[in-house]
Amino acid sequence: MKPVLLDCTLRDGGNQNDWQFTPTDVRTIVSTLDAARVDVIEVGYRGGSGSANSATAGPTAHCTPEFLAALPPTRHAELAVMVVPTVCPVGAMDDLPDSPVSLVRIAAYPWNIDGVPEYVRAARSLGLRTTVNLMAVSYAGLPELAGIAETVRSELPDVMYVADSFGSLTPDGVRERIELLAGRLDCPIGIHAHNNLGLAAANALAAMDAGAGWLDASLCAMARGAGNLATEQAAAFLTAWPAYETHTDLPAVCEAAEYVAEQVLPRPMTVRRAEIAAGINDHHYYYQDRLEKAAARYGLDPWEVGRRIGAARPRKVLDEVLENVCREMSGGLPA
């Protein structure tokens, strides 16, 4: 088996540094990963992130035509951008055929997947390849996932991804979701694993065992919260494990990771209480700091508040959701 390795440092890693990658950062990361023969390099969002609205976001949060035109040429890697339909109009892709980008990743949640086929159709009409990235897949049970597969099949992308956005899935949960999609969709399946429970690598391996052929990763695991599967670790186990084939140059990938660790990351990625709590309670990491403060105001156990938040499966990180949960748990008033 020869998995496709996709690096998303410049896109998902922006959650750590507000997408403030310098031109040198972008040039070094893209050029080094290309020299390492990483298959796909995702260079950012077109039109912004759907979950982190920042007025100060740097260039990889929007991937303007000028930014894309300035990217270094690649000899091996395909370049990709992510589009979130809830914040990016379909017409915003129209100039991409004039850029180095050839792959558009269309990201949606289980509750707004219906809008995705229009974007797949539009991207295909522009001569672009597509992936559909189903975010928060832990919020989709198997019956719902079967319905999502039917929606996606109406305008089949080149690759169908599941994203464990909250880092809450275990290998068994990953395996059953990948098997369902692989059995219903006639296209490759991919996995985007977060590491809140320390299971990103184990979940990636379970996904491949169940039929996934595309792996997302980021250098030094750089991403929101506990981060992703690390690109250098993915390259390492693909190199070491006889069951897999890879043309990726592991020392060159490690060179890129060293650059990110020393020059880009504002702090080392960690898996501590906050990251684990978000994962075990199955909610967006961006809730965690607010959640702990709200729990303290109401004199509540933050772990129990987190469990209630996750059980509610909120569609957005909203303070009113926290307040409603805390009021219900405390009987109405702060402590």
Score class of each variant (00 low, 15 high):
residue 65 P to Y: 05
residue 50 G to E: 03
residue 56 T to R: 15
residue 85 P to T: 07
residue 86 T to M: 15
residue 40 V to W: 03
residue 34 D to L: 04
residue 35 A to I: 11
residue 79 L to H: 00
residue 33 L to M: 08
residue 44 G to M: 05
residue 51 S to R: 15
residue 76 H to W: 12
residue 44 G to D: 01
residue 52 A to N: 10
residue 65 P to M: 06
residue 79 L to T: 06
residue 34 D to Q: 05
residue 67 F to T: 08
residue 66 E to W: 12
residue 64 T to N: 05
residue 36 A to E: 02
residue 73 P to H: 10
residue 63 C to S: 14
residue 81 V to Q: 02
residue 32 T to C: 04
residue 74 T to W: 07
residue 83 V to T: 09
residue 58 G to C: 13
residue 59 P to Y: 05
residue 39 D to G: 00
residue 87 V to R: 14
residue 73 P to W: 04
residue 63 C to V: 14
residue 85 P to D: 07
residue 54 S to Y: 11
residue 80 A to Q: 08
residue 36 A to R: 04
residue 76 H to M: 11
residue 76 H to S: 09
residue 74 T to P: 01
residue 36 A to T: 03
residue 63 C to W: 14
residue 71 L to S: 05
residue 32 T to I: 07
residue 58 G to A: 14
residue 78 E to N: 12
residue 53 N to R: 15
residue 39 D to E: 14
residue 77 A to T: 01
residue 83 V to H: 09
residue 82 M to F: 02
residue 51 S to K: 10
residue 39 D to Y: 12
residue 88 C to Y: 10
residue 35 A to Q: 14
residue 68 L to H: 00
residue 42 E to P: 06
residue 44 G to C: 00
residue 42 E to S: 08
residue 44 G to P: 04
residue 39 D to K: 08
residue 69 A to S: 11
residue 73 P to G: 14
residue 83 V to E: 03
residue 62 H to Y: 12
residue 70 A to G: 05
residue 82 M to N: 00
residue 37 R to H: 13
residue 37 R to V: 13
residue 57 A to F: 12
residue 72 P to L: 04
residue 85 P to C: 07
residue 69 A to N: 04
residue 64 T to L: 06
residue 57 A to P: 07
residue 75 R to T: 09
residue 76 H to E: 12
residue 51 S to C: 10
residue 72 P to F: 00
residue 80 A to R: 10
residue 59 P to F: 02
residue 49 S to R: 00
residue 72 P to Y: 01
residue 34 D to T: 03
residue 31 S to T: 10
residue 69 A to H: 04
residue 48 G to R: 09
residue 83 V to C: 09
residue 60 T to G: 09
residue 67 F to V: 05
residue 67 F to A: 07
residue 36 A to I: 06
